[in-house]
Design a protein around this nucleic acid. Structure first.
Lengths: 196, 196
DNA sequence: TCGTTCATTGAACAAGCGTTGAATGAACGA
DNA sequence: TCGTTCATTCAACGCTTGTTCAATGAACGA
């Protein structure tokens, strides 16, 4: 029934190594999506496998365990880098937030949410989060820079999580630039280090 | 071995109705703790029952299902009421936050976290959260009061969640009044409705 | 061409889950 | 005192989960 020029209908060409890395990537992508959509607990190996058009056993064979799979997702999601001169921290942070609001960073969010849910996930992310806060603190010219950085990071977490998780919310429908505009004085007051 | 005045050693006295409501309260308390500590998914009926010194079947018999049990926990946790005159919203909100930071509201937090995790939980809380935001918005004299209220509520969520869930955090160790002091200009700028 | 590697599958396991329903025995109303 | 109610337990169910392991068959190196 098929013409002669095509050897096989559509068996995904390429060498064995290529095929493997492609399948691995598909699994990782599906896992990231699922961790983001339903969190760590409700993500099942079987569902990830199905979404990646693969058997569940293969996921185990490649990644070892559900937790290791999650670890790979965490490792693959780069945290934003902050290197701003003191005094410029506020705008830098706002720019990063604007980017995140517009682009829907699936991986980062799955980490955030799972950190709130799973102790193992929290451990996996803990150090990275601390490093991120340290970067912010470094750019704040104030003696209580550490606490200010922690508050800022908490605010960003609240904004990001609320926007994506509470569907019926004014935040979810708002334009990113509107959110940034309203948030600017708040972040500035925290990042500048000068009180009212 | 026991003196004559005590009919039985320590079988928890009281009528049948009293006994029941006491047991029910014990279960509800254990459930609230567990939902707070490990979230909705990781809370098991068996663990709640054990913590309440009761059989798992009894929990089902009294509350019907795990979800109904969670619903009861949600219903028993009152959301803070905001009724401030326009212009006074900021301080009102800060006062409420200060109270929450000092008092560790177990129930409210379990709701917050579960909302991030479980769709059913989100539905259960959704309307209450919206009502809370509406109350805030009512006290903000600005055309974009709705969005401002949503942002404020997101900020409060981020602060509360971060403080209790990230143990190794500057926020977790900070004095409530310090957090309030640093947060005041930020909240004020959002609640006052006047830009910079 | 032949033996090996390896991506991939299918079936099965043990454990844990929410949930059910029968059984027990003490408190209760008449 | 007797029959009923009901708080409480116990054992079991069906299901889903993460995980394992043998089997298959195509790609590979010699």
């Amino acid at each position: 029934m098929t013409p002669e020029s095509a050897p096989v209908p559509a068996p995904e060409p390429g060498s064995r190594a290529q095929q493997r890395s492609r399948t691995e990537a598909r699994i990782l992508e599906a896992a990231t999506r699922s961790f983001f959509d339903v969190g760590y607990e409700r993500t099942t190996i079987r569902a990830v496998a199905t979404a990646a058009n693969v058997d569940a056993g293969l996921v185990m064979h490649y990644f070892g365990s559900k937790q290791a799979l999650f670890q790979r997702v965490v490792d693959a999601a780069p945290l934003p880098e902050i290197d701003a001169a003191p005094g410029q921290a506020g705008e830098h942070i706002l720019a990063g937030l604007a980017d995140r609001l517009a682009n829907e960073p699936v991986a980062s969010l799955s980490i955030l949410r799972s950190m709130l849910t799973t102790p193992e996930a929290a451990d996996a992310v803990g150090t990275a989060a601390i490093r991120y806060q340290a970067q912010i603190a470094q750019a704040i010219p104030a003696p209580d820079a550490d606490l200010r950085a922690a508050i800022i990071s908490a605010v960003l977490l609240g904004i990001t999580v609320s926007r994506h998780l509470m569907k019926a919310d004014a935040l979810a429908d708002a334009e990113p630039q509107e959110v940034i505009r309203l948030l600017r004085p708040a972040i500035q007051s925290l990042a500048d280090g000068r009180d009212l």
